[in-house]
Amino acid sequence: MTGLSTTLRNPTYLHSSFSMLLFFASWGIWWSFFQIWLTSESNGLGLSGAQVGTVYSVNSLVTLFLMFGYGALQDRLGLRKHLAVVIAAVTALTGPFCMWVYQPLLQSHFMMGVIAGAVVFSVGFLAGVGLFEALTERYSRRFN
C-alpha cells in the first residue's frame, strides 16, 4: 500500500496519467461518432461507403508517414514538450476544423477535404497517440 501512496504523490505520475486520460477520452468521444457523422443523411454529410473508405484509408496512410516524422523529431527533443504542445493545440481545434473547414471541403472538393482532414487528424490524434505514449514512458523512466 505504501507503493501506491508514494506513486499517487508523484506529481509527474499524476500529470502524465491525467494527460493520457484526457487525450484518450477526447479521442474516444469524437472518433466513435465520426463514421456516423460522415454517413448520416439527416444531420451528417451523407457520404457513401466508398467515400468513407477513402477517408479512412487516406487517414491511415498519412498517419503511417507522420509517425516516422514524430518519432525522429521527438528523439531529438528528448523530454521537451514542444511537439506535445503542438499536438494538444491541434486536438483542441478539431471541433472548429470539422465545422468550418472539413465539412465544407468534403462537400465541395472531396479529395481536398480528405487530404486536409487526414493531415489534421493524423497530426492531432492518429499519430499523436504514439508520441504521447512515448513521452509518458520517457517521463516514467526519468521521474520514477
Rank of each mutant, 00 (worst) to 15 (best):
L8E: 01
L83M: 15
F132D: 04
L21T: 13
Q51H: 02
L79R: 05
N43Y: 11
C98Y: 09
M20S: 12
F34D: 07
F121D: 07
K81H: 11
L66A: 06
H15R: 15
F132K: 07
G53L: 02
S40P: 00
Y102E: 06
M111W: 13
T12Q: 14
E41I: 08
T7L: 15
N10E: 02
Y139F: 14
R80S: 12
E41D: 12
G128D: 03
S40Y: 00
P11S: 11
T39L: 10
V123T: 10
N144E: 09
V55P: 00
L4G: 02
G128E: 07
V123F: 12
L93A: 15
R138H: 08
C98I: 12
S16V: 15
F33Y: 11
S57E: 05
F121P: 01
G69P: 02
S48F: 01
A25I: 13
A118P: 01
G53H: 05
S32F: 14
G71F: 07
A50C: 00
S19Q: 10
G44N: 00
Y70A: 07
F143V: 05
F18W: 10
N10R: 07
G69K: 08
L47R: 07
P104H: 09
L131W: 05
R9A: 14
E133G: 06
V55T: 00
R141A: 11
N59R: 02
S40I: 06
A84I: 13
A72W: 15
L14R: 14
M111Q: 10
V62A: 09
L21K: 04
C98G: 05
A134M: 06
W30S: 11
H109G: 03
Y13T: 11
H109S: 12
N144W: 09
L64W: 08
